[in-house]
Computed example of a mutant assay.
Amino acid sequence: MDLEDGLLMMPGPVPVAPRVLRAMSKPMINHRGAEFSAMYDDCCEILADVFQTKNDIFILSGSGTAAMEAAVGCTTGKDDVVVTLENGKFGERFKKIALRYGKVNPLENEWGSSFDLGEVEKKLEEGAKAITLVHNETSAGIQNPAKEIGKLAKKHDVLFIMDGVTTLGGDDVKVDEWGVDIAVVGSQKCLAAPPGLSMASVSKRAFEAMDEKESLPYYLDLKAYKKSGDKSQTPYTPAVPLFFGLQEALHIVKEEGMDARIKRHATCAEAVRAAANAMGIEMFPQLNDEFSHYSNTVTAMKAPEGVTGNDIKKDMMARGITIAGGQDHLSGKIFRIGSMGNVQPKDIILTIQELEVVLRKRGVISELGIGVGAASEVLDTLL
């Protein structure tokens, strides 16, 4: 397969617009000069709308995991307890990060299953400094109840740290309204920029927690980012070409408008689910309450009987479309189709069309067109 002709339909990285790639080819500039400062401010201004926040926003040269570690490492000391909510790979990652800096009181669910808010509150009643949540667990295709967790965090006076890596820029995320003290996002997901940058919004309350710590991480010191950010700079050398790309990607976000962007993401994901349902493919997440939902940026489906998720992934790759399989113990059991970034209805239709061919050859379905038809009916609402 020619990589330039292939279609990425995985939960990040996502295809990048040609104008973003062109922006990255600009000549280098002085990263301590006025031109960089103007670019930094421009990015933060647009990101404030994406985050729906008045909090400080910082851009880190590092992936979403770097921002996750910055959030936990800057607020958690060795004697502090963090309640970590885990129902997928990235909730598990938050737990592992928290164990490096403090103590953990984990709530560990089956991957893809809803949290019991009563159980969450019991954990908080035992005492904690912070609670972590992955808003959209892409490993399992489930969106977790950030608004409700935020209410519990406020009730028990703990910091609310949220991974919004795969919702910010593609779904409705109300950082201030939900009381999120630190929210993080990665560049290569819904924002449709190249990998390598992450962004964090940080509340005054989170900074107050940092003042209580004896030591902070060095490279991921958010107080250092605050000091430099007040001067429209980064504390350490930024990945300038990635900033060029991010700025252009954020201009695309601004031009589309967040309301339209959120609707497009939600509709594309709904179309994938409609196609799966029409073909008799079962969703993977187990939604056991009214507060959890299917993800609006990736659809996780159970592999049909007699076929593995890896088989489907391999067959789709041979047809020029890259989707994702399951991670860790879910390998082979599920497959996942991303619908984030600048994904368009035609991308969804092409993906479903090729998936139908793959499934018919594997003996899962007997006729073509039923999935495409179901997806098309949903996508017509965008026209």
Results as ranks from 00 to 15, higher is better:
residue 112 G to M: 02
residue 134 V to K: 09
residue 192 A to T: 03
residue 368 L to A: 06
residue 46 I to L: 02
residue 206 A to P: 00
residue 119 E to G: 03
residue 73 G to R: 07
residue 364 V to A: 04
residue 203 S to L: 11
residue 342 N to Q: 11
residue 7 L to W: 04
residue 143 Q to P: 00
residue 224 A to I: 02
residue 343 V to T: 15
residue 285 P to C: 13
residue 141 G to K: 09
residue 135 H to P: 00
residue 13 P to F: 11
residue 21 L to D: 13
residue 144 N to P: 06
residue 374 A to C: 06
residue 215 S to M: 08
residue 78 K to C: 02
residue 200 A to R: 06
residue 253 V to C: 08
residue 36 F to H: 06
residue 322 T to P: 00
residue 5 D to E: 14
residue 33 G to R: 05
residue 373 G to V: 09
residue 362 R to E: 11
residue 293 H to S: 13
residue 55 N to V: 00
residue 259 D to P: 00
residue 24 M to Q: 12
residue 29 I to P: 00
residue 378 V to N: 01
residue 369 G to E: 09
residue 143 Q to E: 15
residue 1 M to A: 09
residue 194 P to Q: 12
residue 260 A to H: 04
residue 67 A to M: 07
residue 30 N to M: 05
residue 273 R to E: 13
residue 193 A to Y: 03
residue 379 L to M: 05
residue 71 A to I: 13
residue 77 G to K: 10
residue 172 D to Y: 14
residue 370 I to E: 15
residue 144 N to C: 11
residue 301 M to N: 04
residue 190 C to I: 04
residue 119 E to I: 08
residue 383 L to W: 07
residue 311 D to Q: 15
residue 140 A to D: 07
residue 237 T to R: 14
residue 271 A to I: 09
residue 220 L to V: 09
residue 75 T to S: 15
residue 109 N to T: 00
residue 58 F to R: 10
residue 73 G to T: 07
residue 117 L to W: 07
residue 100 R to D: 14
residue 349 I to F: 03
residue 274 A to W: 11
residue 92 E to T: 13
residue 203 S to F: 11
residue 70 A to D: 05
residue 133 L to E: 04
residue 165 V to P: 00
residue 35 E to A: 14
residue 216 L to H: 13
residue 127 G to Q: 11
residue 208 E to N: 12
residue 273 R to F: 04
residue 55 N to W: 04
residue 99 L to T: 10
residue 59 I to C: 08
residue 313 K to L: 14
residue 345 P to G: 01
residue 145 P to Q: 13
residue 353 Q to D: 03
residue 50 V to R: 05
residue 111 W to C: 12
residue 143 Q to G: 03
residue 261 R to V: 05
residue 106 P to R: 10
residue 380 D to G: 02
residue 361 K to F: 04
residue 308 T to L: 03
residue 53 T to Y: 07
residue 229 G to L: 07
residue 189 K to P: 01
residue 70 A to F: 07
residue 125 E to N: 07
residue 189 K to F: 12
residue 71 A to W: 13
residue 199 M to G: 11
residue 41 D to E: 15
residue 134 V to W: 09
residue 110 E to S: 12
residue 283 M to F: 04
residue 56 D to F: 11
residue 210 M to L: 09
residue 3 L to C: 03
residue 156 H to F: 15
residue 57 I to S: 08
residue 81 V to W: 14
residue 37 S to M: 14
residue 180 V to D: 05
residue 50 V to M: 09
